[in-house]
Design a protein around this nucleic acid. Structure first.
Lengths: 250, 250
DNA sequence: CGAAGTCTTGAAGAGCTTCAATACGCGTGG
DNA sequence: CCACGCGTATTGAAGCTCTTCAAGACTTCG
């Protein structure tokens, strides 16, 4: 299982630049044993100085910052094959925390290995740097959403993004993907009240764009959803428009 | 002048890790001639693929994304000594644009030089990677603001951040710094209406926290302002709490 | 079947936007 | 030197989005 996640990581890095066989091999050998985390469990604490970076193997993790008054803002979601805190290698102190949104499994790459990579594999280093740059690009896309888009558009956007990223992980089935969260949890993740989230979900249903039932999200009209969301998968793509299956029938 | 900006860049990088003499020298020799830009002029277009990265020498530049309906969200502000798009070295296509907020002067480092750095100077590469990671950390701080903070708190936070960063550039005078923008422009930068910005400015005045008059911002009570803003300069700092003068009497 | 959790609905209120009008500040030409 | 005019700052008021509180309906599972 961990090796599947590393393979996904490699596939993502190769959207940017081809890796040499020894680079791939080095990556595959750099992760420790998987650790399991329960729903809601903290994986990395804000203010800590980790000595390893986390790769998601299974489940969904989120990164968040908490204000003095207890309010929390979700900064990013990570699916299998994503580094959640590769940047902790170059950032001395975590400015946010990482926690498990669903039960999940994580492997870690010690920063010593990353240091070796940066000393010996210039090409792989650029690829990892690229990975953190894509992460920042996703931050920017979220900023757009937080600043400019209504809750309705934002929800549509999140669903588009999750669908595309889930598909890259092979976690979709047709136009559906699993999301084992209550509306309350999605609301908190999303930074809006349960009540309002519910109304937006109903609006998406009424517009025949999305069905959310049980713990499955089904896209009924991806084109329409993309229009509402203003979704442009460019920010998830690699060099020369390589899509790595990211945007099959977008 | 350009060399002052590069010196600031070096000072910032050394918050993370000491640079060798040849690394510093290589940096100093890597930038082209300065170019001037007028207020509002585009420096780098969204969707383009630059072959060089921009270092601000003078003035203020912003990065922004524009939605289909024309609404624009500011993603970051950059002062002298900041790379505005170091990430364009590893990101094949610009996901946002860069433009001059005030008249400014910019020098560029060709990506070929960056490639040489990543091939030959592992230590400097880590330092530059660090720079993009700090940039992402600032994105995260802004996300907090956009998602959780009121316009009043957000304005207080922006003033704190600008003050600290301006001081690092030596652009403050006592508790004041210049901001040659109208309230309308600040509002747009800030993503709120002129009317509401004005009311928030008045509130800050009434609370005796800040004076904004003409084109000068004066902090009357930094402690109080930090409290209102929930400002914690941690995200601007380097390894081992090195502050590089960032937080003298914070 | 009952109980707990989840979803849905209603209604009042906070924060911000927009439109529209008024006041201020300052440089220019008379 | 003053008056005019234009850009900027300020104020008022209506309206939209989202929040909170509170209650009711539906699910699911022991």
């Amino acid at each position: 299982m961990p090796s599947t996640a590393v393979a996904r990581l490699i596939a993502k890095l190769e959207l940017f630049v081809a890796l040499a066989a020894d680079e791939r091999k080095f990556l595959l050998q750099s992760f420790g044993e998987p650790t399991r985390y329960d729903r809601g469990q903290e994986v990395v604490a804000e203010g800590s100085s980790p000595d390893a970076s986390c790769l998601v193997v299974e489940g969904i993790v989120c990164r968040s910052k908490t204000l003095a008054d207890g309010d929390r803002q979700i900064l990013a979601l990570h699916l299998p094959g994503d580094f959640a805190d590769l940047h902790s290698f170059v950032l001395p102190v975590m400015d946010h925390s990482i926690e498990a949104v669903t039960p999940c499994s994580i492997v870690k790459m010690p920063h010593g290995r990353l240091r070796t990579i940066t000393d010996e594999f210039a090409n792989l280093t650029r690829a990892l740097w690229y990975d953190t740059a894509v992460d920042a690009a996703i931050h920017r896309e979220w900023m757009l959403g937080l600043g400019l888009r209504s809750a309705y558009e934002r929800l549509a956007h999140l669903i588009c993004e999750l669908f595309v990223r889930m598909r890259f992980c092979g976690l979709t089935e047709g136009n559906s993907f699993p999301l084992k969260l209550t509306q309350g949890e999605v609301g908190e993740l999303f930074g809006i009240s349960t009540v309002h989230l519910n109304r937006m979900v109903q609006a998406l249903r009424k517009a025949k764009l999305v069905e959310l039932q049980g713990h499955t999200v089904t896209l009924l009209n991806f084109e329409g959803l993309k229009d509402v969301a203003g979704f442009d998968p460019k920010y998830l793509e690699g060099r020369d428009g390589k899509k790595g299956g990211l945007s099959l029938e977008l």
